[in-house]
């Protein structure tokens, strides 16, 4: 029990002020390590202030001082007891070439699940188009149901002028931002225990399957490959990786097969979610540029074989990147 409160406060105030100063220094630049002697001092001051708070907790006439100490102890507690590694200074190149592919590979099983769900959607969409041609009005987005593929191909190949002239940058930016929003949404729907993410992936698969079968059945497979491969080789994997993040989130919420509590499970995957969705964003920037400046131009402007080879090269590079990049670098965190 404190006998003389005024004396107690006067004696302890310098320690509280010193702790506050150290905390402000840490908060201003979290990356700068404290020297060992200052770290020891910081720890000592934290423990002393915590003890002061415990003493003051039963003392009625200092509610403001108690609140001040609570806030001081709360701030110091976060710094002292934080066991997660302090985030390094962001290095974009290292993050993209090492951390992103490593994170992708660490959860590769979840990625394969997204592939299976999308393929199931493709199968459903393809079968629906074959067995019930009227379903194309439901399964095909962006007005692809309004004309036959052969009519569209003929129209595109006869085009005398560049329909995107003066709009390429706008169209490209629109695609990037739209696809990024869809990807974030796909990930965020993981909060529905993964159900929303599965529906999004399946629906994407349905559209892809329906359009693909429609073009192939109409003898326009070459056009389809030349049209979709250049940007789709990045765009489709990007959506799948967003789905991977969503399913990771859903799995953490369900928590099957682990004794960790919900908070710990979510804490474990939080950095991985941000890495995956960040990587998706970068991939979609490339996909948007290619779709706007390359994919929408067909023969005779760009031969289909050139577009197909370009798309295949991109896909190969992406697979190699995700499979191998950063595999020799060991992460410290």
């Amino acid at each position: 029990m404190i006998i003389d409160l005024a004396k107690f406060i006067a004696a302890e105030q310098p320690g509280w002020d010193e702790l506050d100063t150290i905390l402000k220094k840490i908060e201003a630049d979290p990356h700068r390590p404290l020297p060992l002697d200052q770290t020891r001092r910081f720890h000592y001051l934290y423990e002393r202030t915590a003890a002061d708070l415990a003493k003051l907790n039963t003392f009625a006439n200092e509610p403001d001082t108690r609140r001040f100490l609570e806030s001081l102890v709360a701030r110091a507690y976060g710094e002292i007891h934080e066991t997660r590694e302090k985030s390094h200074r962001f290095q974009p190149l290292r993050w993209f070439t090492v951390i992103f592919p490593q994170t992708f590979r660490r959860h590769i099983n979840v990625f394969w699940l997204t592939v299976v769900i999308t393929l199931a959607g493709c199968l459903f969409g393809g079968m629906a188009t074959l067995l019930d041609p009227e379903s194309r009005h439901v399964t095909m987005p962006f007005g692809h149901d309004r004309m036959k593929p052969s009519e569209r191909v003929a129209q595109e190949e006869k085009a005398k002028h560049d329909r995107f002239a003066g709009e390429k940058a706008t169209f490209s930016t629109y695609l990037m931002t739209h696809n990024t929003k869809v990807s974030i949404f796909t990930m965020a729907l993981g909060m529905t225990w993964g159900v929303g993410t599965i529906i999004m992936l399946f629906y994407n698969g349905v559209s892809l399957g329906a359009i693909s079968v429609d073009y192939i059945a109409d003898g326009q497979g070459k056009f389809l490959a030349g049209w979709l491969l250049p940007h789709g080789s990045f765009e489709i994997p990007a959506i799948l990786i967003a789905g991977q993040a969503g399913l990771l989130l859903g799995r953490a919420l369900i928590g099957r097969g682990t004794r960790k509590n919900l908070g710990e499970r979510l804490r474990e995957i939080s950095t991985d979610l941000v890495t995956l969705i960040g990587g998706v964003g970068v991939m979609l920037i490339w996909a948007g540029l290619v779709e706007s400046f390359f994919s929408q131009y067909h023969e005779p402007v760009i031969p289909y074989m050139v577009k197909i080879v370009f798309g295949l090269v991109e896909l190969t590079v992406l697979i190699l990147f995700l499979w191998k990049s950063g595999s020799r670098t060991k992460l410290t965190g």
């Binding site: 007891h81 997660r84 985030s87 965020a188 909060m191 939080s270 950095t271």
Partner: peptide, 18 residues
């Protein structure tokens, strides 16, 4: 009560979509 991490800020803001 721990230190707020950048990944936490990103996730809570991205989840606004839902």
């Amino acid at each position: 009560g721990m230190r707020l991490q950048f990944s936490q800020i990103v996730i809570r803001n991205l989840l606004r979509f839902v």
